[in-house]
Write a protein that binds this DNA or RNA. Structure first.
Length: 564
RNA sequence: UGGGGAGUGGCCAAAUUGGCAAGGCUCCUGACUCUGGAUCAGGUAAUUGAAGGUUCGAAUCCUUCCUCCCCAGCCA
């Protein structure tokens, strides 16, 4: 094995896992978890986290739990729980019987809290939110102790029990960890462990009126589940000392928290707050709008789980802030679609072509390849007749040098059909081109000339008589700027919304094989891009297709550069 | 001006721990082609944030500095 493959480099998290296994930490066990808060829909950034957590479990023969971090009933809803379960499953991951909720542990967490009170490591504080803020200090100044910090264990226990019993209104008291108000890490300045929230919880209903905070919940939940590596994003790095403090104070099993940089993508926004805003303010049609980088939006757009997973596996895992080019996501998408999608012909902006030397009543069935990348996908028949549609942009009356499609007097090939020559351009009163009159060469049936002559272009087409009508939705980036947050003074990201992010085309002409198209089928409309049936709005009578992504298009690119 | 992180071609990102700067995306050529797709071949692009220092040798070690990100929710 002299020319061994260079071993794929391991990211820093896997290096840590390797080291832990080598040193026998945790008996060589690997157990991760994906811990979403059910307060919104999952997006491509979550996919990265999902792929890391489930991927590491898979690679090391370990396990990965799905755990909802549902400690804030005022923001969380069953709708989100349902969508998250659906999306993680769709992405292709399996948590077997390990679907958990932090709320499953509310009882245990309460006991843990009592334990810390008994150890003198927690106290009930009567300060108002404003007073807490007041005493917290600033980035450069230490905080001051709460006047309630030195209550007796008995009084703390009594008050905490009464908090639980519902004796006090929201915000009246909190349970706080007794750590260090002078800590340079603000998270360590006696952080709140429990707050009073008279709110109904999607899972526990009205059983509780006090709820543990993230900091008092996450590590203990990890501990309870026997998590070995608790992987989260960088903004929690400051919380790690607190994560560790709770676990040590409690003296329970202590997982290790590891932080990585969250995903950013050009032309897209990832924060849930702003995703909410886009939906709420009607800039998109919903969480599953195909322009959204939510998993449900991407699914509706035609992204495959395979493409998303491959993308996540290839972008790498590191701690430095980064912004991945959107074109890389598209690259991964096309790579998958190219080898799986059925090739079809569809004309989006039809231009009528009449073959003047083709018999009026005649129809032929021509053979077309379903996928040149995969012979096993076979061939199909495509009907051909005297009147056809071609793409408007495939004809130019007065073409520039680099344009080598159809033009007056020029010969091109109709894919899988015949060579045709354009003899005449028919215009209406407004000088609009409404029809092309062409002649075909019967000897070129199937697309090859027996005399060996070549044509520069091959066009897609659809027989008018046999065509299916459809609506096609073309999508572009939701934002015009690589960084949507880069807005003019006084304006926010909505100033960068792309007015052309959606273009709806009606009266598109599809080849008849598409009549059986159903949601989830992957298609390439030849020379145009990849398309899918819209899962919401399409009906057999009125089909609606979404453009998932265009094909790479050297001609379009050259034109775009020329226009600049 | 406290604390915590991070800086490697335009964008991600490796570099077996001091040994002669991978790979992918983008971009540009060319070949091939019944998709201006795919594929194949090649190319442009990095004094590794900066300056000093140690060393035969530094992206890796030491000093100083610069820049960016996160933290003052009873959100996660």
């Amino acid at each position: 094995m002299s020319d061994a493959e260079p071993r794929p480099s391991t990211d820093f998290i896997r290096s840590i896992v390797n080291e832990d296994i080598r040193t026998g930490k945790g008996d060589g066990r690997v157990h991760t978890r994906f811990p979403p808060e059910p307060n919104g829909y999952l997006h491509i950034g979550h996919a990265k986290s999902i792929c890391i957590n489930f991927g590491i479990a898979r690679d090391y023969g370990g396990k990965c739990n799905l755990r909802f971090d549902d400690t804030n009933p005022v923001k969380e809803e069953q709708e989100y729980i349902d969508s998250i379960i659906e999306d993680v499953r769709w992405l292709g991951f399996d948590w077997e019987d390990r679907l958990f909720y932090a709320s499953d542990y509310f009882g245990t967490l309460y006991e843990y809290a009592v334990k810390l009170i008994e150890k003198g490591k927690a106290f009930v504080c009567d300060q108002t939110p404003d007073e807490v803020r007041e005493c917290r200090g600033t980035l450069t100044e230490p905080g001051r102790n709460s006047p309630y910090r030195d209550r007796s264990v008995e009084e703390n226990i009594d008050l905490f029990e009464r908090m639980r019993a519902g004796e006090f209104p929201n915000g009246a008291r909190t349970l706080r960890a007794k750590i260090d108000m002078a800590s340079p890490n603000l998270n360590m300045r006696d952080p709140v462990m429990y707050r009073i929230l008279h709110a109904s919880h999607p899972r526990t209903g009205d059983k509780w009126c006090i709820y543990p905070t993230y900091d008092f919940t996450h590590g203990q939940s990890d501990s309870i589940e026997g998590i070995t590596h608790s992987i989260c994003t960088m903004e929690f790095e400051d919380h790690r000392p607190l994560y560790d403090w709770h676990l040590d104070a409690l003296g329970i099993y202590h997982p290790r928290q590891i932080e990585f940089a969250r995903l950013n993508l050009t032309y897209t926004l990832m924060s849930k707050r702003r995703l909410h805003q886009l939906v709420k303010d009607g800039h998109v049609t919903g969480w599953d709008d195909p322009r959204m980088l939510t998993l449900c939006g991407m699914r509706r757009r035609g992204y495959t789980p395979e493409a998303i997973r491959n993308f996540c596996d290839r972008i790498g895992v590191a701690k430095a802030d980064s912004v991945v080019d959107f074109s890389f996501l598209e690259h991964c998408l096309r790579e998958d679609l190219n080898r799986r999608a059925w090739r079809m012909m569809a004309v989006l902006r039809p231009l009528k072509v009449v073959l003047t030397n083709y018999p009026e009543e005649k129809t032929e069935e021509l053979d077309a390849v379903n996928n040149p990348e995969d012979e096993a996908m076979g061939t199909r028949k495509v009907p051909f007749s005297r009147v056809l549609y071609i793409e408007r942009e495939d004809f130019m009356e007065d073409p520039p040098k680099k344009f080598y499609r159809l033009a007056p007097g020029r010969e091109v090939r109709l894919r899988y059909a015949y060579f045709i020559i354009c003899d005449e351009v028919v215009k209406d009163a407004n000088e609009e081109i409404v029809e092309l009159r062409c002649t075909y060469d019967p000897a070129t049936r199937g697309g090859d000339a027996p005399d060996g002559r070549k044509v520069k272009a091959t066009l897609h087409w659809v027989s008018a008589e046999h065509a299916l009508d459809a609506e096609v939705r073309l999508y572009d980036h939701l934002f015009t700027k690589e960084n949507p947050d880069e807005a003019p003074k006084g304006q926010d990201f909505t100033a960068n919304l792309n007015p052309d992010s959606l273009e709806v085309l009606s009266g598109c002409k599809l080849e008849p094989s598409l009549s059986g198209a159903k949601s989830g089928d992957l298609y390439q409309f030849e020379r145009l891009g990849y398309f899918c049936v819209d899962s919401k709005d399409s009906t057999p009578a009125q089909p609606v297709f979404n453009r998932t992504v265009t094909l790479k298009d050297a001609w379009a690119k050259a034109q775009a550069i020329e226009r600049k």
